[in-house]
Nucleic acid binder design. Structure first.
Length: 567
DNA sequence: AGTTTCATATGG
DNA sequence: CTCGCCATATGAAACT
């Protein structure tokens, strides 16, 4: 078996719009977005798209993959690549400093022709029981933009992309973002294999039997009683921070809050009980029986992924908390019989991104090692890996206090170029400016710059305590981290898109993606080949983004039956 | 009664 | 002198 295939020399481009009756219009386009033939009205859009995909595998241009692709997928049509006008418009508006303006095809067209710009319609979540109803959900309002509108906006977007700071990079960003929309739809439809019986067993082991009346399960009720006992009271809601604070105060312990790390520093017989209660209570409410009934069906967990749902370009999810599945609950994620999971995790992704984008040769050399922190420690921290790590993380997050301060000074001295890179991003943000990721995603604008209209302090400077100054520093930390986090998201999205292409036509399916981690479900006999394909996708992503860089982006790969067993 | 904010947990 | 980034989800508490 082999994965991957060659590129076709010239990629055909076909625009597509849907009508409300399952039909639509196709339109071949040339390299600059002009019509390259007559518009082709069709009555069965899914069939027409499927036929064209099989014959030419074009790049599809459409208003919104989130709106069109689910119905195509339900009809059994899988597409190789697309240009998503709505996602691209969001990226272009951001690049132009017009973050937050409506980004729909209709809005983009209105800006082009000078008409009134309609606000983006709220996107209703896909109903959990999808699969019935019209092939393409009939919009309740007036008919959507036609094929001429689509082609005009597409051509305009191509021109605007060409005018960005780094057009080549921006094209990659648009391609990755568009592919992400396809993958998110496919992944949500496929779902993550989920064994309800194993989930039940985990819950029974942790929580005891569920209460028949919907109250807390047995072990939680027992813990609550023992906590009340330890405080010498009849009853106590351990999940209420206020009650807990009062209870501790009565036994002479004054606490600022009831966070776990605060409680851990307290000597009292109730503490270990409370900590256990918090942990189990969380699992019961957020990932217990009710969660399973709502989100798991047919042996799969079906979250709704939202690519680009986070300002940094990371994916979000709507409902189900798919990106916060606790480690213990991952025991329920089991491969089908005869199948395996290939789990790949990009270790130390963000510091490696800093090494690659900052142009700091010394840090880039360290980034060539399998363990960047260890290399950093050998190079500049007298072998102290822990100190090297807090220094680098502190620099990327904007830490200014605590034990990291001396380590940060070492970092600044040894890697001035890398340090200066994040410092510059922070200063730009503090001053109210915009920063961009490596491929050109732009951060949202901030508020008013700190120096304008702020009352001078006693020494004539700006009061660092003022709300405005605090907000400026907060925005500086945001922009400082944005240039790293957003670029890391781009690397991961590029890997994912590359991997999807490599796996196309095989039995392997992408079933999970979480920031810097991807899970593929495949027949056991193909697991080794899939693992190699994932590794190759990582190398391809590195080359596409950074070209010839000494920085490596190694993947921790494991082949497992159960997600919880992944390294 | 319904909505918003707070506190706390989870994930990266 | 305060000072670590991005999120989602829950229930309690505080609002309207």
């Amino acid at each position: 078996m082999s994965y991957g295939r060659g590129r076709i020399a010239s990629v055909l481009v076909v625009g597509v719009v849907a009508d409300e009756r399952g039909g639509g219009v196709l339109q071949a386009l040339d390299a600059v977005g002009r019509p390259a033939g007559p518009a082709e009205p069709v009555t069965d859009l899914a069939a027409a798209v499927a036929a064209r995909e099989a014959a030419e595998r074009p790049r599809w241009v459409w208003g919104s993959g989130a709106a069109l692709y689910p119905a195509l997928l339900r009809a059994g049509v899988r597409l190789d690549r697309c240009h998503d006008v709505e996602l691209t418009e969001g990226l272009l508006l951001g690049h132009a400093g017009r973050w937050g303006e409506p980004r729909s095809l209709a809005a983009a067209s209105a800006r082009l022709t000078g008409g009134p710009v309609p606000p983006d319609p709220p996107r209703p979540p896909e109903p959990p029981g999808h699969g019935q109803g019209a092939l393409f959900d009939a919009p309740s309002g007036p008919p959507g933009p036609g094929i001429e509108t689509l082609t005009q906006v597409y051509a305009d977007q191509l021109a605007r992309i060409a005018a960005t700071t780094h057009p080549g990079r921006f094209r990659l960003l648009v391609a990755a973002e568009s592919a992400g929309a396809l993958i998110a739809t496919e992944m949500g439809a496929a779902g993550l294999p989920w064994r309800a019986d194993v989930h039940d067993a985990v819950l029974a082991e942790l929580l005891g039997e569920p209460s028949p009346v919907g109250g807390p399960p047995r072990r939680l009720a027992e813990l609550a009683a023992r906590i009340a006992d330890a405080f010498g009271v009849r009853q106590l809601h351990a999940d209420s921070p206020a009650e807990l604070l009062k209870a501790f105060a009565r036994v002479g312990v004054e606490l600022p809050n009831t966070r776990a790390w605060v409680l851990r520093g307290v000597e009292h017989p109730a503490v270990p009980l409370v900590l256990e209660y918090k942990e189990l209570y969380r699992i019961w409410t957020a990932h217990g029986w009710a969660w399973r009934d709502a989100w798991v069906s047919g042996g799969r967990f079906h979250p709704e992924y939202v690519p680009g749902g986070v300002v940094s370009g990371r994916w979000a999810t709507r409902g189900g908390g798919a990106l916060q599945i606790p480690k213990v609950i991952r025991r329920a994620v089991m491969a089908d019989p005869g199948w395996r999971f290939v789990v790949a995790d990009a270790g130390q992704l963000e510091p490696r991104v800093l090494a690659a984008v900052s142009g700091d040769a010394r840090l880039a050399a360290a980034g060539g090692a399998g363990d960047l922190y260890a290399a950093l420690a050998r190079d500049a921290f007298a072998g102290d890996r822990a100190r090297a790590k807090v220094a680098l993380l502190g620099a990327m997050y904007g830490q200014t206090g605590g034990a990291a301060v001396p380590a940060l000074a070492v970092l600044r001295r040894s890697y001035p170029t890398a340090f200066g890179y994040v410092e510059a991003a922070a200063r730009t943000g503090e001053a109210g400016g915009l920063v961009r990721s490596w491929l050109g995603r732009t951060c949202p604008p901030g508020g008013v710059p700190v120096t304008d209209g702020d009352d001078p302090g006693p020494d004539g400077g700006v009061d660092p305590q003022s709300p405005r100054a605090r907000a400026a520093r907060s925005r500086g930390r945001f922009t400082r981290n944005f240039v790293i986090q957003a670029t890391a998201a781009e690397w991961a999205a590029t890997l994912l898109a590359t991997l999807r292409t490599a796996l196309a036509g095989s039995d392997a399916e992408l079933v999970f993606f979480q920031h810097d981690e991807v899970v593929v479900h495949c027949p056991a006999g193909q697991a080794d080949a899939v693992a190699r394909a994932v590794g190759a996708a990582g190398e391809r992503a590195t080359a596409l983004l950074f070209g010839d860089t000494p920085v490596r982006f190694p993947l921790d790969l494991s082949i497992v039956d159960c997600y919880a067993d992944a390294a």
